[in-house]
Write a protein that binds this DNA or RNA. Structure first.
Lengths: 226, 226
DNA sequence: AGGTTGCCTTAACAATTTCATAACCCGGCA
DNA sequence: TGCCGGGTTATGAAATTGTTAAGGCAACCT
């Protein structure tokens, strides 16, 4: 399949893991690159522009979470998929990882099968997301084509920015979006607006929906949760 | 499939051109893919089956003319539209291009506007299917063959533009049409008319129909809703 | 040809809606 | 208590859209 010409970047400081993961992924037809620490990962990410980045949480130079945050704050990597590799020991890392904008995580010791299936799953999920898909979560529906939000079938009128913001959050339920990411995607990275502006829009959405589906993650950002 | 979700494949070895063209086309609602050389273009063409292919004449691997010839020799790409991008220098290429089976050409440096208008023009020329389907929603009927609108059986006289506009909206109830899309489909993208023009026509339709079936989505466009 | 009619576009102004901010409130925490 | 991050609210400016009237133009009729 042509769809397998996706580029994947793997960052880990253990050569063994790098090798085994790279081998398995490339055998599936992916175009694999590797990085051996945080800085290396950032550099390679910029030059290669991968579709998916697999980041070890614990790495020299910069750890996975830091790398992720840096990437996510850049518009070019808004859409890039990110998977964390976590050692079993640091349990909190998993949560923290997803909160920082990762799309999934895999805990060590790594099972190639598990990793592969997660990778494939992520791509499958993304590929059918040409912005024309209706997002439907519980009793909430978001239709980007009709530009319409309904809750229990009853239409809710949202303004443009409100809609875009909600759509962005709901597109990846549970994932936290940094304030920067939100600004970049909804407002455009060249526009400069105050921080309170986001709050106000969040508020209006919460108010209009009547359902509390947007969770604040203090010091980080917002996420959609129902 | 949306009639406007036409798939376009762009092949050029200069990333800048690829990016700017892709951006402009996707903003018009097209589904855009890119290829960076001749072989890539052939592969992508086979897997994606685009409706239109934009080929740079000078590319690595295989040049545009070669790609075109190969494509044209296959039944599957008999109908596919092809546009060449030519550098000013090779004047002969233009002729050669058209002779090889291209439908049009655009010379570099590329003006997004020119390219867009040619793309739209090609699609309009092809799409000419007279849509003989009668649209019937609730007590409203739109007959493109008779060029007639009736409401509860009573005929309503609409002018040409009014009719086309209503027909476009009603063909996909609920879906929002951007002002740009409306301009392209009803007016033709090479025509330059003020923004208020659309409003005025919308108003006349609303007025003549007497029923409020067109909803304004501020900052976005209009949609048919009953 | 001269006159009539209806369509299309614009300009100008009114009405609406959206949006960004400032100012203030509140709770958690050191 | 004082600070920090976030929630609320009110408000005016800015962006969009609605409305109306008027003129150009082409088709049609006599």
């Amino acid at each position: 399949m042509e769809s397998n010409s996706k580029k994947i970047l793997i960052a880990d400081d253990e050569p063994d893991i790098l090798e085994i993961v790279a081998y398995n992924l490339s055998r599936e037809g992916y175009q694999v690159s590797t990085a051996k620490d945080g800085d290396d990962a950032l550099a390679k990410a910029k030059s290669i522009k991968p579709d998916l980045i697999i980041l070890d949480i614990m790495m020299p130079k910069k750890n996975g979470v830091q790398v992720c945050e840096i990437l996510r704050s850049q518009p070019a990597f808004n859409q890039t998929l990110i998977i964390f590799l976590t050692a079993l020991s640091d349990e909190n890392s998993e949560v923290k990882g997803l909160e920082t904008g990762a799309d999934d995580y895999v805990s060590k010791p790594i099972s190639p099968k598990v990793l592969l299936s997660k990778v494939n799953a992520l791509f499958r999920r993304i590929i059918k997301e040409p912005d024309s898909t209706v997002i439907s979560i519980a009793n909430l529906e978001i239709d980007p084509v009709k530009f319409e939000v309904t809750i229990d079938g009853n239409p809710v009128m949202l303004a443009k920015k409100e809609f875009e913001l909600l759509h962005m959050l709901a597109a990846k339920p549970g994932r936290v979006f940094l304030r920067n990411e939100i600004l970049n995607q909804v407002w455009g990275n060249d526009v400069i607006v105050g921080d309170r502006t986001i709050d106000v829009h969040i508020r209006k959405i919460r108010q209009k929906l009547g359902v509390d589906c947007i969770t604040t993650v203090k010091g980080v950002g917002y996420k959609f949760d129902l």
